[in-house]
Simulated scan of single mutants.
Amino acid sequence: MQYGTKTPRRWAWALVVALAGWACVAQAAVLPGPLVNPPWLNDHAKEVQIVDIRDSLGSLTNDPKFSTVKGQKVLDEVGGHIPDALSVNFWGLRQKHVVDGKTVDFMLPTAKEFQESMQAVQLEPNKPIVIVPTGDDATSLQEAAFFAWELQVFGVPAEQIAILNGGMHAWISAGYAVDTDAIAPMTSSKWQAKAPDVALLATTEQVQAAQRTHGLLLDARPLAQFAGLERTPVVPKAGRLAGASPLPAELLYRNADDGSWRFLSAQVYRKVLAGAGMHRVSPGIVYCNTGQYAAGAWFVVHRIMGVKGLREYPGGMNEWEQRGLPVEAF
């Protein structure tokens, strides 16, 4: 039986569609999970988009700072970035919006605002993303988690997003290459944001409904803020939302032997949270002051532990108090 050298047009089109689908599946399958380590990223750097995120971009061009302890070279402060990394300014992930006639800072951007920001950093569509925090402190992990949450909110599939556990601190401590040249994109990309995924978001009205029905409300801030003993300058009053339970930031991160801050494993989180009396972490709503602590908790529960149904109230205490709503303290 002879076969012609030309494939029928409809078969050719079906083949193109199938190959495109297989390519997307193959790319999505690159990431081993929500967290990667430095050796894995070094081996797969060409297969992913490495996106550095930090709140002080000046350190991108600084040399790392070391000291000597008992004859050993110890990294004190991250400097530089992974070669060929893109750069996201953490402070650019929130915007000012008008709430009840007031201009409120640190709010979730619109899809258009987020899209413009990601295009400016040359984020590519349909290519796995590894987010790299500094790893110098727990706050940097929360910043990476917040970015991961926003990416998922605006349409990036979860399986295409991972965080480098330990961040640049772990990368440098492991002896991998560091670049101190400025990251200065000369063009923009065609990355597109989708409408926000409402399954990941909670509104003020939904928080109030959870209060009325005794739904699960989790406060992801440090315990002193939950108790009303401390507050951040962003919010006018110390306190918490009525009916909230603590999911304290102190339980979610550890300082590793190399000095980097890291997320824990799903197995360890289950033991830690159970030991703290947190037997239920979903479905419900998690909040903090402006979204950062809450995103860290969301990443732990939703991505690392694999427990779905936890939504974030992105405006947090900031939006709540700007609306003149009540808070309580011990």
Rank of each mutant, 00 (worst) to 15 (best):
L164M: 07
M1T: 10
L41R: 03
M107L: 11
M278H: 04
V17P: 01
F146W: 11
L15F: 09
F147Y: 05
A174Y: 01
L252V: 06
A195Y: 05
A174G: 07
A170Y: 00
F66N: 07
V301S: 05
P34E: 07
W13G: 12
D43Q: 10
D100T: 03
R270H: 07
L93G: 04
W91Q: 13
R270E: 10
C24E: 13
F263A: 10
P83F: 04
A210R: 00
R303T: 10
N255H: 10
P34W: 02
Y287S: 09
N89A: 14
I285D: 03
G284T: 02
G80Y: 00
R323Q: 12
A144N: 04
A295S: 10
F154C: 14
S260L: 12
E159T: 12
V69C: 11
G296C: 05
Q142T: 08
E47R: 11
I172L: 11
K308A: 15
A144R: 01
V51E: 04
Q160A: 13
E205H: 04
K194W: 06
N318Y: 03
E250F: 02
P222W: 05
T139N: 12
A249W: 02
H169A: 13
A177F: 04
N255V: 11
L31P: 03
T68D: 11
V30P: 08
H81A: 09
W298N: 12
F66Q: 05
D55F: 09
Q49Y: 03
T232F: 09
E321H: 00
R262E: 12
T180Y: 01
R240F: 08
S245C: 09
D100K: 02
T204K: 03
A274Q: 04
A162G: 02
G309F: 07
V307E: 11
V178R: 00
H81I: 08
Q152E: 14
I131G: 04
N165F: 06
E113I: 14
K6V: 15
V25Q: 10
A295Q: 01
G275A: 06
P38G: 08
L223D: 06
K70E: 14
D84L: 15
T103W: 05
Q119S: 11
D137M: 11
R94M: 14
W298R: 09
A210C: 11
A12Q: 08
C24L: 15
M1S: 12
E250V: 07
W91C: 15
Y313M: 12
R262M: 14
M186D: 12
V74E: 07
W171I: 13
E312A: 13
I161P: 01
P38K: 01
A184M: 14
D43T: 11
G296W: 00
L218I: 09
P157I: 04
A202S: 09
E124V: 14
D76K: 07
S260C: 12
A45D: 05
H44A: 15
Y3G: 15
G324H: 00
A195G: 08
Q27A: 14
S265F: 13
V178H: 01
S282E: 03
A23G: 12
D179Q: 02
V16H: 04
L86I: 07
S173E: 09
A210F: 03
A182I: 08
